[in-house]
Simulated scan of single mutants.
Amino acid sequence: MSSVAIIGDIDTVSGFRLGGVKEAEVVNTAEEAITAFDKFLDDEISIIIITQVLANEIREHINRKIGSSVLPMIIEIPDKDGSSEGSSDQMNDLIKRVIGVEMVK
């Protein structure tokens, strides 16, 4: 595992491709997002970046596939319309998964 991949809308994916991310999938539906996610899992990608909107649509699938494992690291980012509610909760969950300690406010 050593690379980064992006799953998202055309604008988000294009920006990451311009930034040098080679593994990228433009998706428009939850089914396409699941297919792309599974492909990157099979390719042993270490960091999967996905837009928050898509991650919310396939949340159960993501949780079922990766469970509590640290890798791949799933990073949810806002799409062109901005961030969704609960993004700070997702960051706390990510920190807990990576370091094993829950951050308290």
Rank of each mutant, 00 (worst) to 15 (best):
residue 24 A to C: 10
residue 56 N to I: 02
residue 40 F to W: 08
residue 73 M to R: 06
residue 53 V to P: 10
residue 73 M to F: 08
residue 69 S to D: 12
residue 68 S to Q: 10
residue 19 G to K: 08
residue 14 S to R: 14
residue 72 P to D: 08
residue 74 I to R: 04
residue 34 I to N: 00
residue 17 R to T: 14
residue 66 I to E: 01
residue 41 L to K: 06
residue 33 A to T: 02
residue 80 K to G: 13
residue 8 G to R: 01
residue 57 E to T: 06
residue 81 D to I: 11
residue 26 V to S: 05
residue 68 S to I: 09
residue 37 F to G: 00
residue 87 S to W: 07
residue 72 P to R: 02
residue 66 I to A: 10
residue 60 E to M: 11
residue 28 N to F: 00
residue 31 E to R: 02
residue 42 D to S: 07
residue 6 I to E: 04
residue 84 S to C: 14
residue 70 V to K: 15
residue 69 S to G: 15
residue 13 V to Q: 12
residue 21 V to K: 03
residue 6 I to Y: 00
residue 68 S to T: 12
residue 13 V to K: 09
residue 94 L to V: 09
residue 72 P to F: 13
residue 54 L to Y: 13
residue 61 H to L: 01
residue 26 V to A: 03
residue 50 I to V: 12
residue 13 V to F: 15
residue 82 G to H: 14
residue 42 D to K: 15
residue 54 L to Q: 05
residue 86 G to C: 01
residue 37 F to W: 00
residue 44 E to H: 13
residue 36 A to K: 10
residue 77 I to D: 01
residue 76 E to D: 14
residue 30 A to M: 07
residue 45 I to W: 06
residue 51 T to R: 01
residue 55 A to L: 08
residue 19 G to R: 11
residue 37 F to N: 00
residue 66 I to K: 02
residue 40 F to A: 05
residue 27 V to T: 08
residue 75 I to A: 15
residue 36 A to V: 08
residue 78 P to K: 09
residue 41 L to V: 06
residue 67 G to N: 09
residue 73 M to T: 04
residue 7 I to Q: 01
residue 8 G to C: 10
residue 73 M to S: 11
residue 16 F to R: 04
residue 90 Q to E: 15
residue 24 A to F: 10
residue 70 V to M: 13
residue 65 K to H: 00
residue 28 N to M: 06
residue 53 V to Y: 11
residue 47 I to Q: 06
residue 26 V to T: 14
residue 85 E to W: 00
residue 17 R to I: 04
residue 53 V to M: 07
residue 42 D to I: 13
residue 6 I to V: 13
residue 73 M to D: 11
residue 39 K to W: 07
residue 34 I to F: 00
residue 60 E to C: 07
